[in-house]
């Protein structure tokens, strides 16, 4: 797919605190600044609940070092051994025009191209059944839909969106390794040399530029985004928010 290229800000924060990760994404959604691709990892490892998930229906919360609730939907994710990305932009952006599933197809196609560059033969699940599907764990990687990305017969990427005020926040988690909470899911490290986020980042950036029409320019959050993020941070692990359902 060839697209006219538009400037996107690239913010990379590896090893960032979990509440900061979630709060900065929400601030980027709310402030409405430049279209932004964030690439990040989590320190410590963190289990994030989907916005509408019931806390009691995710047994894995007891095993993670930290727990937050996302503002995006979907199932719980144990953020360890993964590269997380977020896309925040206006819904008028060509990537997000049309029905929600079409936007997943566009983004997932780009991710599949990037994974191919590190020896991972990923594809959309479509009508396949996956060995990683499990009942009653509440985990994103144990539940699949046709547009999910899989390889070796297991789900290897989780994704979810939040749409608010004409804007969209799109989360993606690409698994480099697994954890006892998530068990036998697909990981890049079992397919070749991609064992660290830095192994995948340049390929993901290039694929987003080529397939999604981004022209990435390194940047940092604006003062207004930082200020809002710092105000939002505490809520993400506030017991009332965590157990809202």
């Amino acid at each position: 797919m060839t697209r006219a290229q538009h400037p996107w800000r690239l913010i990379t924060t590896l090893g960032a605190p979990p509440n900061f990760n979630m709060a900065l994404d929400e601030a980027l959604l709310e402030i409405g600044g430049a279209p932004t691709l964030r690439l990040y990892t989590w320190q410590p490892d963190t289990l994030s609940l989907g916005y509408f998930q019931k806390y009691a229906e995710v047994p894995g919360v007891a095993q993670a070092s930290h727990v937050v609730r996302r503002i995006t939907g979907g199932g719980a994710i144990h953020h360890a051994g993964e590269l997380t990305f977020s896309l925040t932009t206006d819904l008028s952006d060509p990537i997000y025009q049309g029905a929600v599933p079409r936007s997943y197809e566009r983004v997932h196609f780009a991710v599949i191209q990037a994974l191919g560059q590190v020896g991972v033969r990923a594809k959309l699940r479509l009508d396949d059944s996956l060995a990683s599907d499990q009942a009653a764990t509440g985990m994103c990687f144990h539940h699949s839909t046709p547009l999910d990305i899989a390889w070796m017969g297991r789900k290897g990427m989780g994704s979810a969106q939040r749409r608010r005020g004409g804007r969209v926040l799109h989360h993606g988690s690409i698994k480099l390794a697994t954890t006892p909470i998530e068990g036998a899911i697909a990981t890049t490290s079992e397919c070749g040399p991609c064992t660290e986020p830095a192994d995948l980042i340049p390929h993901l950036c290039l694929a987003f530029e080529q397939e999604l029409g981004m022209r990435l320019e390194r940047g940092v959050p604006s003062p207004a985004e930082r200020e809002l993020a710092s105000r939002l941070e505490p809520r993400y692990s506030d017991p009332e928010f965590l157990r809202r359902r």
């Binding site: 503002i71 939907g73 979907g74 749409r163």
Partner: peptide, 9 residues
């Protein structure tokens, strides 16, 4: 409202 892949206001 939440669909399989998005939460919307």
């Amino acid at each position: 409202i939440e669909s399989v892949k998005a939460v919307a206001d």
